[in-house]
Design a protein around this nucleic acid. Structure first.
Length: 832
DNA sequence: GCGATCAGAT
DNA sequence: CACATCTGATCGC
């Protein structure tokens, strides 16, 4: 990726800028390095780790700066910065002989002007702040530090012969790297630095910053004056890293439980801890914030941020909801959180820990039940039970066992103190610090080794003859939810008890909330990884997109739908001259239903006309010539209007549109529903469903993004445009002056409904409607028509826009439709 | 000497 | 694997 190049480039640049090679010609590496001889003495040499093309990785230098007395050391440390090497053949740089060098107490020194990259925050701040705007941040992902670099510290004495062998090794190493050149060095991710960086501002990865604010979530290592408010989702060490007892960098917002722990365990001054009530919006610098249970561990929270969007005058015109999941295990009950219900989430910062199909595990309660039943079976009075836990987490197993067996679980004093902070969500009576009264013990995970278990057995002085340990984790090796290993008197159970969402739960979550943007927070330090994560959700968006757009815009039923829709909503004023004739169009399919001959009220005609008037400008879709015939809507019982649509031979399934036609309740949103009956299967499209709305917004956004990046799109429908308005199908071709980009693209092809039957569709259309098509393909679709579609949907979903329809002021005859269509096609894309 | 940070282990 | 630590070493004030 570019980032990679940037890093390298900066590195090199920095090297050249800073390094002072004295009189050494920079372009001419020192001879002793440049040739392949191995120098056995360090003194008085410039070591330069150079590259032939001047684009070299920076080099350690000036080894000859002597400082006799210093201890020598050569060490390497993790490099969080360089996000390169997404390619498969990245080699973990184990081959570097750093360990042996350390062991041999070897030491080298380089100039202070050398730079370092070990935390991504040093000399390349520009680069990092750019990254900060990216969804994925290649660097600083504390959960995914893989790459190492080495740093070289202190000076080496030129007179210190004791270190010659070490110097040898080091120089050999340098020569190795030199020989293989920049690419190899890059591959290995090695860089040289002189010393541990002094305190510098660390740039947080973008997923820790709430977009458009100076709020940091779980990003305490990145404290700086750039951030005014700090949020802690839950009390796990990888999330509170950076909080120390001397914290004074701003308010820490968290839940009551978490806050108590921050105070008690980390010793943070109480005045910096702002505990927030559950499920209650508070105002922080104009942003409304709420903490919602995230089902991860006691006190863990999803954090909802609601930003106000203002116009130039500073008036609030809209709001944007951002949800940060922290660590969470999705549960459908979250759908009903009052603060989330019906909310369009623009950005979802997602705990994607188990975002891979291999991670399927049963619901927690299942596992808990199974553990409890094992305990039931094994609890013979002579068996000691150990339950692996973290500082907090996994309590539900303990609680269930305690409840079932009627005995508390032993915890250490320290753990009891922690649990005491959680008394609001735990029953403390289920725990004890007296181990003599219970065979159940909460232990650290490390106690679940064979030897530890044996030694506990020993310590019991014969009270227990066997020991059973449970290790709850989502990373079970097996497809089974519980595996066990028996060894002597010990039995070790690995149970798929997870406090993160399973793959399916993640999908369910996305399917429900349909955020406009998903921002992964785990293992997302490259664009490739992010794309991979997101790819697991694209079909969720695609599915509904196709149901909606394909059904609406490639076929004519939308007209009928609107006829009924309007009829139910309003009594339009119309000019009789503009009435549509209820002419029937050709139908080539066998008419499967006699109901299609039903009567049509003039109302419907007029509303059709209104519809046409109002929307024809926007709704110029490329209706395939060979697809549709229409039937007029029919009045049926139950206040429903049914439109039976028949399709030509390449469409086997029928679509039935139902609209609640309760005129007495025109305000009722129930009207905004569409039922697709497709081969016996029903799909309901609810125009008032926030998911639906969100989806449309999301589509729009993708299109706009694409439009911005990709104004010239060479994708062109192969078909001529045709507009279908009312009862008349019009073929039109764009005038030669218009680029083809104004043509309708066929994202909306109905062939998605019968992909095996689309031989008459162009390849383009077929591919666009392929259920497996991904978001990127969508993005490459033609912006104008897609935008129109979205625009249309927004109108659909906005009752006001429908109700406020004004009668057309100019006469538009059926024939003018053709004109209009053409005109529209000739126009530049509508704004939206 | 202690807090902060880091590497390595589990 | 990688979660959520824990420990020991080093650095810096």
């Amino acid at each position: 990726m570019n980032d990679e190049e940037d890093d390298i480039f900066l590195y090199v640049t920095k090297d050249k800028e800073i390094t002072n090679y004295d009189n050494c010609d920079e372009d001419l590496p020192p001879k002793d390095i440049d040739d392949n001889t191995i120098t056995t003495t360090a003194p008085n040499k410039h070591l330069k780790w150079s590259d032939d093309d001047n684009d070299d990785i920076s080099a350690p230098k000036d080894i000859d700066e002597v400082q006799t007395n210093k201890k020598k050391q050569f060490s390497y440390q993790k490099d969080e910065v360089i996000g390169q090497d997404e390619d498969d053949n990245y080699n973990e740089p184990k081959d570097i002989d750093s360990q042996s060098l350390i062991d041999e107490d070897c030491d080298f020194e380089f100039d202070d002007s050398d730079f370092f990259f070990d935390d991504g925050t040093t000399n390349n701040n520009n680069n990092n702040s750019d990254n900060n705007n990216n969804n994925n941040n290649k660097s600083n992902n504390y959960k995914n530090n893989k790459r190492k670099n080495f740093q070289i510290k202190n000076s080496i004495s030129s007179n210190n012969n004791n270190n010659n062998s070490n110097i040898d090794k080091f120089e050999k190493r340098l020569l190795d790297l030199k020989k293989t050149g920049k690419e190899e060095a890059k591959k290995r991710g090695y860089q040289v630095r002189t010393k541990t960086p002094t305190k510098q501002k660390k740039i947080p990865p973008s997923f820790k910053v709430i977009d458009g604010t100076n709020f940091l979530v779980d990003g305490f290592q990145y404290k700086s004056e750039d951030y005014t408010h700090y949020f802690l989702t839950h009390f796990h060490s990888d999330h509170y890293v950076g909080i120390t007892k001397t914290w004074s960098f701003g308010n820490i917002y968290c839940t009551e439980e978490t806050g108590k722990l921050v105070s008690k365990k980390l010793g943070v001054d109480q005045r910096y801890i702002i505990t927030c009530e559950w499920n209650k919006l508070i105002d922080i610098q104009g942003v409304k914030v709420a903490f919602l249970d995230s089902n991860h561990c006691p006190g863990s929270a999803l954090i909802l941020f609601i930003k106000s969007i203002r116009n130039e005058k500073g008036e609030i015109i809209d709001e944007e909801s951002i949800l940060h999941t922290g660590d969470f295990r999705y549960n459908p009950s979250m759908n009903n959180y009052p603060l989330l219900k019906g909310r369009v989430i623009s950005k979802l910062y997602l705990d994607n820990t188990y975002c891979d199909p291999q991670y399927v595990f049963p619901p927690q309660f299942e596992i808990i039940k199974q553990v409890a039943s094992i305990v039931r079976k094994e609890n013979d009075g002579e068996t000691l039970f150990l339950f692996g836990t973290y500082v907090i987490g996994k309590e539900r197993i303990l609680l269930e066992v305690a409840k079932q067996e009627g005995k508390p679980v032993h915890v250490t004093n320290e753990k009891y103190a922690i649990l005491s902070c959680l008394d609001t969500c735990l029953d403390l009576n289920k725990f004890t610090t007296d181990e003599s009264i219970t065979p159940f013990r909460a232990v650290t995970m490390s106690m679940l080794s064979y030897h530890s278990m044996l030694s506990l057995l020993d310590q019991s002085n014969g009270k227990y003859k066997r020991v059973v340990g449970f290790r709850p984790t989502g990373w079970t090796q097996s497809k089974k939810s519980i595996t066990y290993l028996n060894r002597g008197p010990t039995t070790f159970y690995s149970v798929a008890y997870s406090e993160h969402s399973s793959y399916n739960e993640l999908r369910d979550c996305i399917d429900h909330f349909r955020p406009n943007q998903i921002i992964p927070t785990v293992d997302c330090d490259s664009q490739i990884k992010v794309n991979n994560i997101l790819s697991h959700f694209t079909d969720l968006y695609e599915k509904k997109k196709q149901l909606t757009i394909a059904s609406f815009f490639s076929t004519q039923p939308v007209t009928n739908f609107f006829q009924s829709f309007f009829k139910s909503k309003s009594e339009p004023i119309i000019d009789d001259n503009k009435k549509l004739k209820t002419t029937t169009t050709t139908t080539t399919t066998t008419s499967t239903s006699a109901t299609t001959t039903a009567t049509t009220s003039s109302n419907i005609d007029t509303t059709t006309n209104i519809f046409k008037q109002k929307f024809c400008d926007d709704l110029i879709w490329d209706c395939p010539d060979d697809i549709i015939s229409d039937k007029l809507p029919i009045q049926s019982n139950d206040n429903l209007i049914q439109c039976k649509i028949e399709k030509k031979e390449n469409f086997n399934d029928d679509l039935i549109f139902l609209s609640d036609n309760n005129q007495n309740n025109s305000q009722n949103n129930q009207n905004n529903k569409l039922v697709l009956v497709n081969n016996e299967k029903e799909d309901i499209l609810d125009f008032d469903d926030p998911v639906f709305i969100s989806q449309q917004k999301w589509i729009e956004k993708q299109i706009n993004n694409k439009k911005n990046n990709n104004s010239n799109n060479n994708m062109t429908p192969t078909k001529t445009n045709s507009g279908y308005l009312g009862k008349t199908k019009i073929n039109s071709t764009p005038p030669p002056t218009q680029p083809q980009s104004n043509k309708k693209q066929k994202t909306t092809s109905p062939s998605s409904y019968n992909s095996n039957n689309s031989s008459q569709q162009s390849d383009l259309k077929r591919s666009k409607s392929d259920p497996n098509v991904n978001i990127n393909q969508l993005q490459t679709s033609q912006p104008p028509s897609q935008s129109l579609i979205t625009s249309f949907f927004q109108k659909c979903t906005s009752p006001t826009s429908l109700f406020s329809l004004t009668p057309p002021s100019t006469t538009t005859t059926t024939t003018t439709k053709t004109t209009k269509t053409k005109t529209k096609i000739n126009q530049s894309p509508p704004k939206k």
